[in-house]
Nucleic acid binder design. Structure first.
Lengths: 207, 207
DNA sequence: GATAAAAAATGAACATCGTTCAAGAAACAA
DNA sequence: TTGTTTCTTGAACGATGTTCATTTTTTATC
């Protein structure tokens, strides 16, 4: 396949991702329709399947973009924080809450979307999820110098997942979710308890 | 409407819920099809919409059942635990992990299912979600005697959501999720950190 | 028990999806 | 220029949830 051809295809793909992103942002993941995306992108329905494997793949591309923006937001949140590990973790959590609220539907799509059973997530997209825990590792390592390697990464995932759970149930408006007004406070309290509990462990009471 | 009529309708509804539950357990929420459910229940396609408002409502009924079973499991987990608040919370978390693993697809449906935008969850189903935090309140109140009423309930929701987040990302097999083998340990570590951190706060360093 | 009214059961039909595919148009290579 | 590859197109296909006119069953009344 020539360069020009691949360029053309990439251009249409980009246009489709743009439109899909806008549609998800406007109407949610469930509001993404092949016919509307192609109509808005100015191509035929079938052209979508030449530019991209299928609609699921298109969502993955949108999600990769969102993850990149989220990664940048989290990185920025760190810069503005103090040195103490707890300060960094609080800043990260607050940044996560802010991003989720400001990008509700796109953020929601990150976890709402499911590939058909038996279909494995492609590696290029898996890698993009790393930003969710990258910035957690350093401050966590300071709190738990006894942890390293795999165990440290594990604990970082757990830390993220805990905060994420609170944010997700809250923003979904679930019965057991916290109301959105108290979300920031509750997350702060959670991070505070987690870091101090962790720190206490290090101090010697044992695990 | 006579008694006999209502009885008949309730019987079919029960049969439909049974079948729907089995189908979700076997093939997941996405594998629930109106045609298959009615075929297996031995009624016509249209009969479903006389017994129940729509397919979404059928899912809510299945979810209510799952919540009741989950509530019983959590209650049982408490009984077998010690007196100390942390022991109770650990037992609850372990019970939650066990239930989720043993009832993967039905448990998954609880949080996977979404009503169409703008449709409010009916009250009878909302109430059934209370079991998720009921047992958390008492031990949490012991750890935080300064909290009461609304604030205590809030913190219970946050505690549940944190544990839930870790379980959900793990069992979904997400990249940032913890592998299933370490799930129990990570949840235990999280609960430990949360309770000790919480306890530490009570001890006086202030919030 | 006969009969009228109400309810339920039925499955064809409809609307809306994602996806495929045969045919024509365009781009490329020789 | 010509033959080959690729892309584009939109009709068609197969699922799917839901509706609806029709038929069947049940209930209520005399």
């Amino acid at each position: 396949m020539s360069n020009k051809t691949e360029e053309k295809r990439a251009e249409l793909r980009m246009r489709l991702i743009d439109v899909a992103e806008a549609q998800i942002a406007a109407r949610g993941l469930g509001g993404l329709k092949a016919r509307e995306v192609t109509a808005e992108a100015g191509c035929a329905l079938g052209a979508l399947y030449n530019a991209v494997q299928d609609l699921d793949t298109l969502v993955l591309h949108v999600n990769s973009r969102t993850l990149a923006r989220l990664g940048a937001a989290l990185h920025a949140a760190c810069q503005g924080a103090g040195e103490a590990p707890e300060d960094v973790l609080q800043a990260l959590a607050a940044g996560y809450v802010a991003f989720a609220r400001e990008n509700r539907r796109l953020w929601s799509a990150l976890f709402e979307h499911r590939l058909p059973e038996g279909v494995e997530t492609p590696d290029w997209h898996k890698r993009d999820h790393a930003v969710l825990i990258e910035e957690i590792i350093a401050p966590l390592a300071h709190l738990r110098p006894d942890l390293a390697g795999e165990a440290l990464i594990m604990r970082a995932r757990t830390t993220f997942a805990a905060v994420h759970g609170v944010v997700q149930l809250a923003l979904q408006g679930r019965f057991v979710g916290v109301p959105e007004e108290s979300l920031a406070d509750e997350v702060a309290a959670l991070v505070s308890a987690m870091t101090r509990g962790t720190h206490l462990l290090r101090a010697g009471t044992g695990e």
